[in-house]
Nucleic acid binder design. Structure first.
Length: 406
DNA sequence: CGCATTTGACCCGCGC
DNA sequence: GCGCGGGTCAAATGCG
């Protein structure tokens, strides 16, 4: 049934894109007789709905990260390297509440942002310091803070005090969090001087075997393969969340809607925008529970009951990519249903599962891809999970990630 | 001795 | 304005 729904949904998307393109062509012809401003407004409208988000999301995929690996220093500085930085541009505009962005403007602001962000980083990580340094730009600062606060949280069962994720971390603080008898530990990345990435590690209050690791920020240095998976997840997640927060007449995407979209079907990846900071949660603690598949399919009865078209518009920017592989989505999606209860067993024996059966990462990727049609996000999710599950196998991690990208 | 960790102090935002 | 909680700093401490 889910495959059927997915089929219909895909067909609907294709139809929508076709209509939009026809509409656009017609407008382009007819507006030759109209005023130039009218033409501009149409074009802008289209840019906001389709190419803009496409432009933001695509570079955040694994390929962008790979570029960083091969050209770490110079590339990083010119285009700032860290995907959510682009997101910041989007959210900045979202706060300003204007849909007047063009690609040119975006580049221009990107340049400004680099200059802004470089100084606080070289000065240390403190957002407080950053705020003190630039007291004259409250709006942009708050947006920047929002960008930086986009987080990826990973829940996994582990007896160890910290999950090995390929990076080097230094503990810089520990606090007792309210409502949790277990202390929360604060770490920052020490693989490069001035790397802004931080993470928090805390045990779940309800189940202390569950370790909750929350990542924040983007690395400013090349990463080992195992660490890259997690980093790309952070980037893609932040990208997804914040690009979805931008306003438009069509309501491109709402994180709450997205959360409702992903949650009921996979129960593995959830997105929360209601938290103090937008957070993606990867839940790797799911115990086998076949009954979950008895649940009804996702119902879009969320906070936006009258706007099912939001879902279509959110996915449409990725259509050119996702349309190239509908069989991929569908087949893997059904694979998820068949073998989801392998999730916990794979945690213990990742290497045994790969040759014959789809990996857990494949399944999550397929599930989220089928729903979101966002290749960069789903690939990153899959890579992250592979990274965690196969923490001792960085090669398999990167391979799986690459395969997912393909 | 150098580095990492610990831990109390401090800062800041937010709600009342 | 005040208190609270989250997050960070930095001196003290521990460890190899």
């Amino acid at each position: 049934m889910i495959s059927h729904v997915s089929n219909n949904y895909t067909a609907l998307q294709m139809h929508l894109v076709t209509l939009m393109q026809q509409h656009r062509n017609r407008e382009a012809k007819s507006t030759q007789e109209h005023e130039i401003q009218e033409v501009k407004s149409e074009v802008k409208k289209d840019e906001v709905v389709v190419p803009r988000q496409f432009m933001e999301l695509v570079p955040h995929s694994g390929t962008a990260e790979t570029d960083e690996m091969t050209h770490p220093s110079s590339e990083e500085r010119t285009r700032s390297g860290s995907p959510p930085n682009n997101v910041e541009v989007a959210s900045k505009d979202s706060i300003k509440g204007k849909n007047e962005i063009s690609q040119f403007n975006q580049e221009e602001r990107d340049g400004k942002r680099i200059d802004r962000e470089e100084s606080p980083e070289s000065d240390g990580w403190g957002p407080n310091k950053a705020q003190k340094l630039n007291p004259a730009k409250p709006i942009e600062q708050s947006t920047e803070a929002t960008m930086r606060k986009a987080r990826v949280s990973v829940r996994a069962r582990s007896e160890a005090p910290m999950i090995s994720d390929g990076c080097q971390w230094r503990k810089y603080g520990q606090k007792m969090a309210k409502g949790n008898p277990c202390p929360r530990a604060y770490y920052r990345c020490t693989m490069a001087v001035g790397c802004p990435v931080r993470k928090q590690v805390q045990r779940c209050a309800e189940d202390r075997t569950i370790l909750i690791t929350t990542y924040e920020g983007n690395h400013n240095h090349p990463l080992p393969p195992a660490a890259m998976a997690m980093a790309s997840t952070t980037s893609a997640a932040a990208s997804m969340l914040l690009s979805g927060s931008m306003p438009s007449a069509d309501g491109i995407m709402n994180p709450n809607l997205l959360a409702r979209t992903i949650l009921p079907s996979s129960s593995m990846a959830t997105i929360s925008a209601s938290a103090p900071f937008p957070t993606v949660t990867l839940d790797l603690t799911q115990s086998p529970n076949p009954l979950k598949f008895q649940r009804p399919p996702p119902q879009f009865d969320g906070p936006f009951p009258g706007q099912p078209q939001n879902l279509a518009s959110l996915s449409s920017p990725q259509l050119p990519q996702s349309f190239g592989q509908p069989p991929f989505n569908q087949s893997k999606f059904s694979g998820l249903q068949l073998s989801k209860d392998m999730g916990s067993s794979q945690l213990g024996h990742p290497q045994l599962q790969q040759p014959q059966l789809p990996t857990l990462a494949d399944k999550v990727s397929a599930a989220t891809a089928a729903i979101t049609n966002d290749p960069s996000f789903t690939a990153a999710l899959a890579a992250a999970i592979t990274s965690i599950i196969g923490g001792a196998h960085p090669n398999s991690s990167s391979n799986t990630s690459n395969n997912d990208n393909k």
